[in-house]
Nucleic acid binder design. Structure first.
Length: 502
RNA sequence: GAGGCCGUAGCUCAGCUGGUAGAGCAACAGACUUUUAAUCUGUGGGUCCUGGGUUCGAUCCCCAGCGGCCUCACCA
């Protein structure tokens, strides 16, 4: 940083601010309007030199000094506005205006008018620096394009790339909308442990950490599920949590090691209730995002479509509802109940070690190989339901068919977006499934981890319930049209640079 | 874990068949009172990711490493 000559130039300019008696790293500013508010003060009949007085602050993105007049474009998180600074109307502050440079954060007071070409402009009668930028901003036209720099220096990405800021403001609106939606259905928000002595509730590899005073290893949670269900036992009938889960697995465009999950449980509901809730919520969110009409959307005004990458996803309800059985029949041409043909199909599709794998494990592998690609190509959200019971140990069996689990997953654009169950509340069955590891399944892929306290909780009686998990990052990807999860996570995990490591 | 692509000035990018590197923006000096990525004149700025190798000579070819992106595998 110190060996950057532009940093040295800016240090010199910092000294000139001090020489003027200004505080280049300033203090609180009162009576500020947002730039959006300032723009709205300009009406059709606003005179050229303005009428309404405002004070705005923001980062300097563009600066055109044409001698005795300077045009400055500043931005805050509500938008951009042009400032016109004329020597004639500035007096002693003119020296300060000449010191401003790209990247500085400054405030301006003046009247909202416009130029002869109609550009809304604050004609400054006062100005000051709020914070001096000692490092130059990225190129003003292209912004920060280097993906690695965008993630490592997100603070630069946010002010240099308006699209990026937009995504994270949208993410905030999405999460708020979800909370409003659930509060409207009488859910309460809770927080359960992220450090757990037993990482349960899902099949995934956990991160390990250590507590010094207790001298015990703890796991970062892979799921809040078993704690949220304890709350159902305690009588909190509708609970949800929006928070981080941690899974020690690969990183790619759809996986960050820490990711945000919405998980909720509703007493006296079931899978059908969760399906209704999920669809209503996703439709509400898509509708909210649809308001920023995009060209592709305008072509189908009667359909609730959103662009995602190079495809158009249609969220118009009702979503598709297809059973595991139908999908396997249609795409793999097998009868799920017929062990012999399932083995044949598995062999046909290259599944290894077939003789040593349980029936349900074979079904799962066939589904992943054959059905998932077909679902990924669909342009509508799909509820896949009636999963093989063996793959879902925390799920209640489907009434009237013990081989099936009362579970659905919602697939959108090839991503598993949501996962829901009619929850298992029989402590005797639960205890049994905790000990079950299906043949052909790796230990870390199973949920075979006995949680005695959770069994004890169920033994006190958990109301029948529906449970649902939604991956918030992926949801935001779909709603914000970002095909990489790193574009919707503010600070995605990257390998530390050597400078940081030392 | 496997494969493909990428790493050049603060930023965005060129760089031919191997002959010690260029542009735009930004910076610095100057002109300019209605610009719109302002314009015009002049100037400075490089560990070509790192380390080896081949070569008279490597940003360029080869090998290894580091970092990133994408695809696949695992997973949500």
């Amino acid at each position: 940083m110190q060996d950057n000559p532009q940093y040295q130039d800016r240090l010199a300019r910092l000294a000139r601010w001090h020489a003027l008696g200004a505080e280049p790293f300033g203090r609180r500013l009162d009576d500020l309007s947002s730039i959006d508010q300032a723009r709205q003060l300009h009406q059709a009949d606003t005179p050229h030199d303005g009428s309404a007085a405002v004070k705005v602050a923001g980062r300097i993105l563009l600066l055109r000094d044409i001698g005795k007049l300077i045009f400055i474009t500043i931005a805050d998180w509500t938008g951009r506005i042009q400032i016109g600074v004329a020597k004639q109307s500035m007096g002693v502050d003119w020296d300060k205006a000449k010191l401003l440079e790209l990247g500085d954060i400054a405030w301006f007071s003046g009247k909202v008018g416009h130029t002869k070409t109609g550009e809304i402009t604050v004609w400054a009668d006062g100005l000051g620096i709020a914070s001096k930028a000692l490092l130059p901003p990225p190129e003003k036209f292209h912004g920060l394009a280097d993906t690695e720099l965008r993630y490592r220096q997100r603070y630069v990405d946010l002010f240099a790339n308006p699209d990026s800021l937009e995504v994270f403001l949208l993410r905030s609106r999405v999460v708020r909308e979800i909370r409003d939606f659930l509060h409207g259905r009488n859910f309460v928000e809770v927080e359960t442990p992220m450090m757990q002595s037993l990482a349960g509730g899902a099949a995934a590899r956990p991160f390990v950490t250590h507590h010094n005073a207790l001298d015990i290893d703890l796991y970062l949670r892979i799921s809040p599920e078993l704690y949220l269900k304890r709350l159902l036992v305690g009588g909190m009938e509708r609970v949800f949590e929006i928070n981080r889960n941690f899974r020690n697995e690969g990183i790619d465009t759809r996986h960050n090691p820490e990711f945000t999950m919405l998980e909720l449980y509703q007493a006296y509901s079931d899978l059908a209730g969760m399906m209704e809730l999920t669809e209503s919520m996703v439709v509400a969110l898509a509708t909210m995002c649809r308001k920023n009409a995009r060209p592709a959307d305008a072509e189908s005004p009667s359909r609730l479509t959103l662009q995602f990458g190079d495809r158009l996803i249609d969220y118009t309800p009702p979503f598709e509802r297809l059973s595991y059985r139908e999908l396997l029949q249609r795409h793999a041409d097998v009868n799920m109940a017929d062990a012999a043909t399932v083995k044949q199909a598995a062999a046909r599709h290259g599944v290894a070690d077939i003789e040593n794998k349980a029936h349900d494990v074979l079904l799962g592998e066939l589904f992943d190989r054959v059905v998932e690609p077909a679902i990924a190509a669909m342009e509508r959200p799909v509820f896949v339901h009636d999963y093989p019971a063996g793959l879902c140990p925390l799920t209640r069996r489907k009434p009237g068919d013990e081989t099936l689990a009362d579970r659905f997953e919602l697939y959108v654009a090839g991503m598993e977006l949501a996962n829901a169950y009619t929850e298992l509340n029989d402590p005797l069955v639960q205890e049994q499934t905790f000990t079950q590891q299906l043949a052909g399944q790796k230990l870390e892929d199973s949920m075979a981890r006995m949680d005695d306290d959770f069994i004890a909780a169920l033994a006190h009686g958990m109301p029948p319930a529906g449970g649902l998990g939604i991956g918030i990052d992926r949801l935001v990807m779909l709603l914000a049209n970002r095909t990489s999860i790193r574009d919707v996570v503010l600070f995605p995990l990257l390998r530390p640079t050597t400078a940081v490591r030392s």
